[in-house]
């Protein structure tokens, strides 16, 4: 079972149905103890960083989440779910993240363009990436965000995207994967990426 973590922050339905379309047993779970039985974890999320961390903490997700990662369960963070993996964010003040990956979440400079960035932007893909295997260079993915991840270790960057600046739009650290875009909303390419995630199981 792939556990899609429901901490009250987002539209989880489309994530579940993208996995269902690929024949995977993905379930939306709202009880942290369920993670014990999960073969893989998906952390989606829209909205703001601070309230998301508060919600994860208050609802008791932190310990089972870290435990699942410690036993090597594949993990996919989507959008805010990717940002939460890092140590901190400057969204509406300073917030601590899960700290699973080193680095910070920063706001796009005003000169980058309109905020939020909404729409289809292109991926410059690291050829070795497992997450983006089979996806063409410069493929388009659907983005909605105003903040981006700045990983300390650039080797974990699986794809970069340009929006005024070149930033990490996908990351891959072992079995911990993250997408700043929404694979579940990125058409056939997005489904292929989720299929790649299923290969980790």
């Amino acid at each position: 079972m792939i556990a899609i973590i429901d901490y009250g922050m987002s539209n989880l339905r489309s994530v579940r149905h993208a996995f269902a379309a690929l024949g995977a047993d993905a379930r939306i779970v709202d009880t942290p103890s369920t993670l014990k039985n999960a073969r893989a974890l998906v952390l989606p999320g829209d909205g703001a960083f601070g309230p998301a961390m508060q919600s994860l903490t208050a609802r008791g997700w932190l310990e089972p989440l870290h435990a699942a990662l410690a036993r090597g369960a594949p993990f996919l963070g989507i959008c805010l779910g990717m940002q939460l993996l890092f140590e901190s964010s400057e969204e509406n003040g300073a917030h601590r993240g899960l700290g699973i990956l080193r680095g910070a979440v920063k706001k796009f400079p005003r000169a980058a363009g309109k905020l939020p960035q909404i729409g289809w932007n292109q991926l410059q893909i690291q050829p070795q990436s497992k997450f983006l295997a089979g996806i063409a260079e410069n493929a388009f993915a659907y983005f909605v965000h105003s903040y981006y991840c700045a990983p300390m270790d650039e080797n974990i960057i699986a794809a970069r995207t340009d929006y005024g600046i070149s930033y990490a739009s996908a990351i891959e650290s072992g079995k911990v994967w993250g997408a700043q875009f929404h694979p579940e909303k990125s058409g056939a390419d997005g489904l292929k990426m989720l299929q790649n995630f299923l290969e980790l199981l």
Binding site: N11, H17, A21, K185, S186, G187, G190
Partner: peptide, 11 residues
């Protein structure tokens, strides 16, 4: 909306 969300993989 639910039916659309279940099969449409664009926003």
């Amino acid at each position: 909306v639910e039916r659309v969300a279940d099969t449409l993989f664009i926003p």
